[in-house]
C-alpha cells in the first residue's frame, strides 16, 4: 500500500469547518505539531548542554577582571601532574576499549544465540549497569585493598603470607591493572547492550543464508555480522571512549591521587583548589580529546548506505 505519512488529523483541533473554504487553505496544525512537541526538549538541552559548553570555553580563557587570557592553559600545562594525567588517561582509554569491546561482543553473541537461561544471563550481565563508577571503585577496593578479598584468597591458597600492596603508588602496573579491571567490570554491560540491540536488528535469515552457502562461524562473523553491525559498533565505541576519557570516580575511590587522570584533575581544581578557570581548562582538554576520538571513529568505522538500508 502507499506509504502512510502519519499526519492524519490535527492535534487538539476542534471542528472549525466551513464548507466554503477549501481544505488546503486551512492552517495545518499537524504540520507544526512535531516541532511544538520537540521544542521544550530542544530548548532545555540548549540551556543545559549547549550554553554551558560555550561557557566552559569562556571560563577556560577567562583571566582576572573579565579579560581574555591563555594563562589558565599555561598554568595547567606547567603543573607537574598535567602530562602524567594526559598520559594516564590515554593509556587507560587505549587499554580498556579493545578488551572491553571483545568481551562485550562475546557477551552479546552469547545472548543472541538464544541459549536457555538467556533472560537470567541478560539480567545478571546488566547488573553492573546499575552500579555507579564510585560504587564500582569501592567494590574493587574491597577486593584489592591490602587486607581485602584477593589477598585473603592468596593467603588461603598459601601464595602469600601478608598479601601484596596492589594499590601502592610504587607499583604503577598493578595500579593500572586494578583500575582497568574495575572499569571493564563496570562498563562492559553498556557496550554489550548497544551491540545486542544491533545484533537483534540483523534479520536471522542473513546468517542462515550464509550457513546454507557453507560459511564457517568465523566467516559468518567477519563477512555478515560485523559489517551489518557497524552502526552499533560505532555508537558503542564513541560512547565508551568519551566515557573513558572522563574516568574519575573509579580511580579516585580505588587509588586516590596515586594515578592522576584528567577528570580527577578537573574535579580537584574546582573542588579542592577552588579554581573554576583551570578546572574549565581541564574540561576543554577532555572535550578536545572526545571530539578527536569521535572524528577518528567516524572516519575509520564508516557507515555505508547499503548497510543502513539492509538493516531496516
Amino acid at each position: 500500500m502507499s506509504s502512510r505519512v502519519e499526519t492524519a488529523g490535527a492535534w487538539g483541533e476542534e471542528v472549525t469547518s466551513s464548507p466554503s473554504v477549501p481544505s488546503r487553505r486551512r492552517p495545518r496544525v499537524e504540520a507544526v505539531a512535531p516541532y511544538l512537541l520537540l521544542a521544550p526538549s530542544v530548548f532545555f538541552l540548549s540551556v543545559f548542554v549547549v550554553w554551558p559548553a560555550i561557557q566552559a570555553i569562556h571560563l577556560a580563557f577567562e583571566g582576572p577582571n573579565n579579560t581574555l587570557t591563555s594563562y589558565n592553559f599555561y598554568q595547567m600545562t606547567h603543573e607537574y601532574t598535567f602530562w602524567p594525567s594526559v598520559k594516564n588517561t590515554l593509556i587507560f582509554m587505549v587499554s580498556i576499549i579493545p578488551l572491553e569491546f571483545c568481551l562485550a561482543f562475546s557477551m552479546a553473541l552469547i545472548i543472541n544465540t538464544g541459549l536457555r537461561g538467556q533472560q537470567f544471563f541478560l539480567y545478571v550481565w546488566t547488573i553492573p549497569l546499575a552500579i555507579s563508577d564510585l560504587a564500582a571503585g569501592i567494590v574493587w577496593l574491597s577486593i584489592y585493598t591490602q587486607n581485602g578479598y584477593f589477598n585473603s584468597i592468596l593467603h588461603d591458597l598459601g601464595l602469600s603470607q601478608y598479601g601484596y600492596q596492589f594499590l601502592s603508588y610504587q607499583n604503577t602496573f598493578s595500579l593500572f591493572a586494578v583500575c582497568v579491571v574495575a572499569e571493564i567490570w563496570r562498563s562492559t554491560s553498556l557496550v554489550m547492550l548497544i551491540l545486542l540491540g544491533g545484533l537483534q536488528g540483523i534479520p536471522r535469515e542473513f546468517g542462515e543464508a550464509a550457513d546454507v552457502f557453507g560459511a564457517t562461524f568465523w566467516q559468518r562473523l567477519w563477512r555478515i555480522t560485523l559489517p551489518l553491525l557497524k552502526p552499533s559498533i560505532r555508537v558503542a565505541l564513541i560512547l565508551r571512549t568519551i566515557f573513558a576519557i572522563q574516568v574519575f570516580a573509579v580511580i579516585l575511590a580505588l587509588v586516590g591521587s596515586n594515578l592522576p587522570v584528567l577528570g580527577a584533575q578537573a574535579y580537584n581544581w574546582y573542588h579542592s583548589y577552588q579554581n573554576p578557570n583551570i578546572a574549565a581548562a581541564y574540561s576543554i582538554v577532555i572535550l578536545v580529546l572526545s571530539v578527536l576520538t569521535t572524528a577518528f571513529y567516524l572516519t575509520v568505522v564508516r557507515n555505508k548506505a547499503e548497510i543502513a538500508g539492509a538493516t531496516r
Binding site: 520537540l38 530542544v42 559548553a53 571560563l59 572522563q246 574540561s283 577532555i286 569521535t294
Partner: peptide
C-alpha cells in the same frame, strides 16, 4: 537532524557542563 542533536547531547561530557553550570 533533531534526532542526531539529541543523540549528540547525550554523549557530551558531563565534566564540561558541570563547572560552568556551577558558576551560573
Amino acid at each position: 537532524v533533531l534526532q542526531l542533536i539529541v543523540l549528540a547531547t547525550r554523549s557530551f561530557p558531563v565534566i564540561i557542563l558541570s563547572i560552568p553550570l556551577a558558576v551560573t
